[in-house]
């Protein structure tokens, strides 16, 4: 069972982890890549490095990709590498993604979709995916959104994000933590992205500590954003169910199911 956790070092990351690593200005990309490759060799994993400025990483990694020259989606390239890793006898695939703002000209929506794809891939395949962000390159709201969809966190900021959404099992997404007015926008972005890819989104809310009116409004709006969609929240507490009903959202035109 996957569980969210904060890592002290990348050495603690393992198979199936999807790590968001926030790098400071002094962190060196090549040093990080070398250490990552060394660990891959130690465990018998195929190493894939994705990033625009990692040409020299090709000296030591099995696969190096520049996202600007992919000719397709990142997740498709990653899945191909995972398949070839299996054929080539590697234990698994480990991906180090140096996420650069220049590589995502489509904007934060596309980046979030890619991160959710990688999250699903890591959970389903058992691959290790590390997404390294330079904090100074990104605006706060984008960083908050992408941090929320990584169950594992490593970096200069001491605290985990207020809430996390991560893959659990084949059909569900665990939602844990606190979603209030300060996180409602990020939650809405994540949910809209999931609903764009799936007719029904199943959210496992057993670890959801708090969900305020702003978050409920975001949930209602997102569920109506596209036609014929449904959001099922499992593991909700009686306070959330009561507040949802009191807020006027428990109506057929809002395709949300709240279950204990």
């Amino acid at each position: 069972m996957r569980a969210a956790r904060t890592l002290a070092t990348l050495d603690e990351a393992g198979n199936g982890d999807h790590v968001c690593q926030l790098m400071g200005p002094a962190d060196d990309v090549m040093d990080r890549s070398r250490a990552f490759v060394a660990d891959g060799a130690l465990f018998g994993d195929k190493v894939m490095i994705v990033g625009p400025a990692v040409e020299t990483a090709g000296e030591f990694a099995q696969t190096v990709l520049d996202p600007a020259r992919l000719g397709g989606s990142l997740i498709a390239a990653v899945r191909r590498e995972a398949e070839s890793a299996g054929r080539e006898g590697y234990r698994s695939l480990r991906v180090l993604h140096h996420v650069s703002r220049d590589a995502w000209p489509e904007g934060p929506e596309e980046l979030l979709r890619s991160e959710l794809d990688l999250e699903e891939f890591a959970a389903d395949s058992g691959a290790l995916v590390v997404c390294a962000y330079r904090g100074a390159e990104w605006d706060a709201s984008t960083l908050e959104e992408v941090r929320c969809v990584h169950p594992h966190y490593l970096g200069s900021r001491p605290e985990s994000p207020a809430f996390q959404v991560y893959r659990t099992g084949k059909e569900g997404w665990t939602v844990n933590g606190v979603i209030d007015a300060e996180g409602a926008s990020a939650f809405g972005a994540v949910l809209c992205t999931l609903l764009a890819q799936s007719v029904t989104v199943r959210l496992l809310c057993h670890g959801l500590e708090f969900f305020d009116a702003a978050a409920m409004g975001t949930l209602a709006d997102a569920s109506r954003h596209l036609p014929d969609r449904k959001v099922v929240l499992e593991g909700t507490n009686d306070t959330l169910r009561l507040a949802w009903e009191l807020s006027g959202f428990a109506v057929p035109s809002i395709p949300v199911v709240m279950a204990p």
Binding site: L242, S247, G248, V251
Partner: peptide, 19 residues
Amino acid sequence: HRPTSTQVGGRGLWLVHQL
């Protein structure tokens, strides 16, 4: 006033009174 399903915002104080 009880909020409607389509109104934008305005639920906070209603919830406060109810809870």
